[in-house]
Design a protein around this nucleic acid. Structure first.
Lengths: 200, 200
DNA sequence: CTCGGTAGTGTTCGCTGGAACACAGTTTAC
DNA sequence: GTAAACTGTGTTCCAGCGAACACTACCGAG
């Protein structure tokens, strides 16, 4: 909807806002783009406002504000748990001190509630391209067939694929060298993998 | 260090900045606290600046800014490039409009300079646990042996492992079904993979 | 007791910066 | 092909806002 030029102006406003804390004045926009007239900047602001890209308070200085991509619920702190305690308290968030800041939209999430991270140990999921040391992002929810889930086995969390065999839920490893089928009925499923982060 | 009153003023500035995107003017501060004189507000700003609580640009409108809880160099916008153009312009950042916000400390980076993302196509790196559709985070730098690099081949970017064979640099695929050795001498290495993100 | 920091009132000055008006070339859409 | 955007130039006007100056009052430290 925005034209090339308008996007450039918008980007400039955003950058100024981010880096200096202040939205630019019309004359600062003018100077940045080398306009000979301040009106050119005004025109762009008017257009951007009409298209809803910015908010503008009439008469006030530096009043062109980009409605903050609301730094809200996505991009949030999520707890990092190397190992999930049995009780699975809902808010260990503050306690560990270990937390990640990341944009959960990357993983199609709208909010950070019920999302946590955990580090993979071993190579039982190697055929699902999940390697030792990877960080897995998990959301607490009911698994569907084929999902990769974090499950609590013997007080430790492991990653397995949730499959149905003859109407029975099972947990399967993704590595032929591992015993793969574990009855999933009485196991505690901690959540479903929604993403993965690896540091090379 | 700050007095009661100064903290109140600081809090007000911060709140305005957060909620409206704009720091208040001296007169807005005056009105909010019910001062009869604008100078009272000015005095507080001066005091806050002297104590380092705010930054102030002289002569400019709305210039009292609270140094943002440093939304620092990590956690920065990095460009997302599906395909890197040959010239590799240094600042396509604003242009694409496509950008990721993420905490680069996850990948051991201090700053976002020279970092970009690109989506993996195909499964030539499957044995390095890199799957089709994965998002690879790349930094522009010289590769070392064993690094996974993004290289420009026939105008398109592919991921390969950088290896030395008889002192010759080669690019190797991580999939036996792919022809694996490509002389790396005259190829353009775009950067080294420093991380990976996958959406499940 | 005096000096410096805090907290104000009241007033004036003048740069900063938004807004309106007039005019014009170039695209895009119907 | 004509009207409605989009992009600009140039100029003028004046409200928004920072800044300086003069003066008052309270308080804690040396």
């Amino acid at each position: 909807m925005l034209t090339q030029r308008q996007q450039e102006v918008l980007a400039f406003i955003q950058r100024q806002q981010r880096e200096t804390g202040l939205p630019p004045t019309t004359r600062e926009i003018q100077a940045h783009f080398g306009f000979h007239s301040q009106t050119a900047a005004m025109n762009h602001l008017r257009a951007l406002q009409k298209k809803g890209a910015i908010r503008k308070a009439a008469g006030k200085a530096r009043a062109a504000v980009v409605p903050q991509p609301d730094r809200t619920p996505w991009e949030r702190s999520i707890p990092f748990l190397g190992l999930i305690p049995a009780g699975m308290p809902t808010d260990t968030v503050e306690e560990t001190g270990n937390a990640l800041e990341l944009d959960l939209r990357l993983f199609g999430q709208q909010s950070a509630t019920g999302v946590f991270a955990l580090r993979v140990r071993g190579d039982s999921m190697i055929n699902a391209q999940i390697a030792d040391g990877d960080l897995v992002i998990v959301q607490q929810k009911q698994p569907r067939e084929g999902d990769i889930v974090a499950a609590l086995i013997d007080g430790e969390v492991t990653l397995k694929r949730y499959v149905m065999i003859q109407r029975q839920p099972r947990l399967a490893a993704e590595n032929p060298r591992y015993p793969d089928l574990i009855p999933a009925a009485d196991l505690q499923i901690q959540g479903v993998m929604i993403g993965l982060i690896r540091r090379a």
